[in-house]
Design a protein around this nucleic acid. Structure first.
Length: 200
DNA sequence: CAGGTGATGCCCT
DNA sequence: GGGCATCACCTGC
């Protein structure tokens, strides 16, 4: 029998304001660790993210604005959803001043809200694998391209401040082929809900 | 548990 | 037409 969901015992913090994202992506990314991310009331605690910035070739914005990535060049506090490998969706939060074209990729959640809905969408019972990857968490939360370019402080999206400050691991980003040596991946130290363990 | 690989859509050159 | 900010499943240790 699975352990009791954490949502039974922990309270949500204050809603994040859109101004939270009007800072350097390198400040926002680690600050997002431990916050709660819900879509339509379903989601959990962010345990892993990566930062991307226009000045670095792994970013979708590196080659300038296109129809797909235009939201990255707009104001902070909006979602950017793209299709990955033709199969999965991945979600980012746009950061910094308009034109900086930086964003935080949400890579893993600790599921806390709507476990039944997530299991149904994922076709899985294993709680540890529900949201342990950028494509997995989008499937669990029902995120598609229809959720791109939406404000992060209005329904159906909700973000809540962390109630405790977790110990944070920092490492190289995963699954990319360019700018592989930038340590722009952040995660909750020792979390069982990461997409991959941080090297010790 | 680590490593290799096929599936699959679409953006951009 | 090339190249992916991935996942699940298979192998072999």
């Amino acid at each position: 029998m699975a352990q009791k969901p954490r949502s039974d015992t922990h309270r949500l913090g204050k809603p994040l304001k859109r101004a939270f994202f009007d800072r350097s992506v390198h400040e926002v990314a680690p600050d997002l660790i431990g916050t709660t991310f819900l879509v339509g009331g379903v989601g959990g605690i962010i345990v892993e993210v990566e930062a991307y910035h226009q000045t670095e070739p792994a970013a979708h914005s590196f080659n300038g604005p296109t129809p797909r990535n235009q939201v990255m060049f707009g104001p902070p506090g909006f979602s950017y959803v793209y299709r990955s490998y033709g199969i999965h969706w991945c979600v980012n939060f746009v950061c910094e001043a308009p034109g900086s074209a930086s964003a935080v990729l949400i890579r893993a959640l600790e599921p806390t809200h709507g476990l039944a809905a997530m299991r149904r969408r994922r076709g899985l019972g294993d709680e540890q694998s529900l949201c342990s990857g950028p494509g997995k968490l989008c499937e669990a939360l029902g995120i598609t391209i229809a959720h791109s370019e939406l404000p992060l402080d209005r329904p159906p999206i909700a973000l809540y401040a962390r109630s405790e400050t977790p110990e944070i691991d920092i490492g190289m980003r995963i699954g990319i082929t360019k700018a592989v040596d930038l340590p722009w991946r952040y995660g909750v130290k020792g979390s069982k809900f990461l997409s991959k363990r941080f090297p010790s």
